[in-house]
């Protein structure tokens, strides 16, 4: 594998967006790009990542390769990232290490890190981001992040309801409750403020606040978040990157005993 990002901070943002959710991950590299999937330690949140060749300045992968890493180690190396540096990832045919090369052309500086790979046994699950859902919502990632931060302070359970009035986010804590209603809107001057809802059924689902606080860490990857909900199946919270690919978080709703 030889894959070069023209801006090393892109890879840093991608890794930082889920390093607090999962501790280790297998990157599956092939000619169609880098894909990865991991479940958090409590087995509740599934992270699914896609970095297609369009995200790279140059991308070459001669044969499918699995690159297993500890995210805490990788994240330490990526502290060197800067927007003025490129980052090239190299993996040999019989991989036992990942090489990261940062290059700053203006500063005539290069930095090289090598990281030992780890053997991770994990089943790949069939996830389909085109999955059928009762409700799809596209909205501002900044708005979603703020609502999650504000409301989850009040309760460890966060409810999403979608009906004819729009989308309602609510919490009902022991000492306080809160509710935010958003209606669809189109802002031609600032499309990142658009909110669209398509629904075949109304939904009313509750999620653990803790996982939503992890999910919003990926909001640096995109202006928009795409939400997909169906009764009794995992919801998908997805941030799509400008140059293609993105990161999706599958989270199963809580249910009453």
């Amino acid at each position: 594998l030889e894959a070069k990002f023209d801006d090393s901070t892109i890879f840093k943002k991608i890794i930082d967006s889920f390093k607090d959710s999962v501790s280790q991950i297998n990157f599956m590299c092939s000619e169609s790009g880098i894909e990865a999937q991991a479940i958090d330690d409590s087995r509740v949140l599934l992270v699914s990542l896609s970095i297609p060749p369009s995200c790279f300045e140059t991308y070459r992968c001669d044969r499918p390769t699995t690159v297993g890493v500890y995210l805490s180690s990788l994240s330490k190396l990526l502290k060197s990232a800067s927007s003025s540096a490129t980052l090239t990832l190299y993996v040999e045919d019989q991989p036992d290490e990942l090489l990261l090369l940062f290059e700053e052309s203006k500063a005539s500086k290069s930095m090289e890190y090598k990281m030992k790979l780890v053997d991770i046994t994990a089943d790949m699950l069939e996830v389909d981001s085109d999955m059928k859902s009762d409700v799809s919502v596209e909205m501002s990632g900044v708005e979603f992040t703020k609502i999650v931060r504000d409301l989850t302070q009040l309760s460890d359970s966060f409810t999403v309801s979608v009906g004819k009035d729009g989308i309602v986010f609510s919490v009902d804590g022991e000492t306080a409750s809160g509710k935010v209603l958003l209606q669809p809107k189109e802002d031609l001057a600032n499309p990142e403020n658009n909110l669209s809802i398509s629904m075949t059924k109304t939904i009313d689902l509750s999620f653990a606040s803790k996982y939503l606080l992890d999910i919003i860490k990926a909001s640096t990857l995109s202006n928009m978040i795409s939400l997909k909900f169906s009764e009794e199946t995992p919801a998908l919270f997805e941030f799509k990157m400008e140059k293609g690919g993105g990161i999706g978080f599958y989270l199963a709703p809580k249910y009453d005993e």
């Binding site: 087995r43 509740v44 790949m124 599958y250 989270l251 199963a252």
Partner: peptide, 14 residues
Amino acid sequence: AQNQPVISPFFKKK
């Protein structure tokens, strides 16, 4: 009280 189901049973293995 609410229960939090784990995620894997919702997906098939590849």
